[in-house]
Design a protein around this nucleic acid. Sequence first.
DNA 1: GTCAATTCACATGAAAGAGACCACGGTCTAGTG
DNA 2: CTAGACCGTGGTCTCTTTCATGTGAATTGACGA
Length: 403
Amino acid sequence: MEQKPLIKFFESYMASESLFLDKKTLQSTYTPKGVPHRDKEIKQLAEILAPTLKLERPSNIFLYGKTGTGKTLSAKYTTQQIKQLAETKNLPIKVIYLNCKLKKIADTEYRLIAQLTREFGKEIPATGLPTDEVYKIFFSTIDKEKQLILLVLDEIDQLVKKTGDEILYNLTRINEDLKNSQVSIIGISNSLTFVSDLDPRVKSSLSEEELVFPPYNALQIKDILKARASQAFKNGVLEQGLLEKCAAYAAREHGDARRALELLRVAAEIAERENEKQVKIKHIDEADRKIEDDRVLEVVKAQPKQFQATLYAIISISEKRKGSIITGEAYDFYKNISIRLGLPPLTQRRISDIISEQDMLGIINTKVISKGRYGRTKEISLAIPSSVLPKIKKILGEGLDLA
DNA sequence: GTCAATTCACATGAAAGAGACCACGGTCTAGTG
DNA sequence: CTAGACCGTGGTCTCTTTCATGTGAATTGACGA
């Protein structure tokens, strides 16, 4: 590429005015000052947690609701307030927020406890110690001084799914062994059915109180968008009816406010790149597509080789002919590929799991069907829009070097 | 024609192994005074 | 004498393999009308 045009491009980029005033407010990491349309939930939460300020242990709480319904935000908001108040009054209250889904941080029993201990300023090796040893360290660390600990465990269902409910049992029981401190757990879960699968003992002690977060409706999402947009954008940058459209898109997907915000942000970015003075409705459509594409692309890129090879096999077959693919067929194809690549082929058992995992990631769709006399298998079809297929194939080709 | 038994091609579960990490304690080695 | 290098042991974690059991309906075959 010539260099001069590039400089010109940068110059014109700098000269062009940004549509954003403050982009941060649209990003998912941003914590707004209030949580609109969640007054009722926050009030309940506050009532339950209030005893904390008298240094009495509040009940354990369980928050449910789908993604983007403000669970995390409400919990963070409420606990922050408590923390602030505690600080000004010099109360020994500690709030710990942990997202159990974060890989390598809190997705196993060992790591969760280790991370908790770290929150109290004690270093714990990433691995190497027996789990009960870590428990002991954790115990002695928090019990050293008198304090009340509010433990917020986000996406707790992921944790339990991976490691079983033993941790929760231990954590809920922990108060019996502590002399000075007290721990109270706030569990947050996306899955509504989560609690019913728990061990009854855990269930009763963990969900002393429950709070359900219903999805936002389109009107509420619009409100939320409006509030954030006023901070994020300059005046008059948004086309009339844009927020409504954005809200409608998100409401269609079970009222996910996070998605609505992302949609708005990406749409604005697209508009900016196209040198538009305004974010238009067509940009929303484009953003919707882009988000989905990017998500798939990211997911695919992050997969280990064996996953990529499996996906490659499935894509190749689906290109060759119409109709759905069955496990055996995909496996045969996969085996060829992996041999060609010098990868040790995995067992069918494993590939079966890999296919299921990719189903969960939304890259492919599978359905277990029984073809009577001809057995029982998974029917596989691609969930990727055909527009991204070439890109994906390219990434897979690179990832597997050679194709 | 009807109905239960059969049978296929996997799904799904459980358990256990391999290999990468890691901490800890003991032993050995080389540098220092 | 001591700090650091270098084991061996025992632990976790992830990815797999092995072994076992489960399963839904097309097909089969016996049976009765």
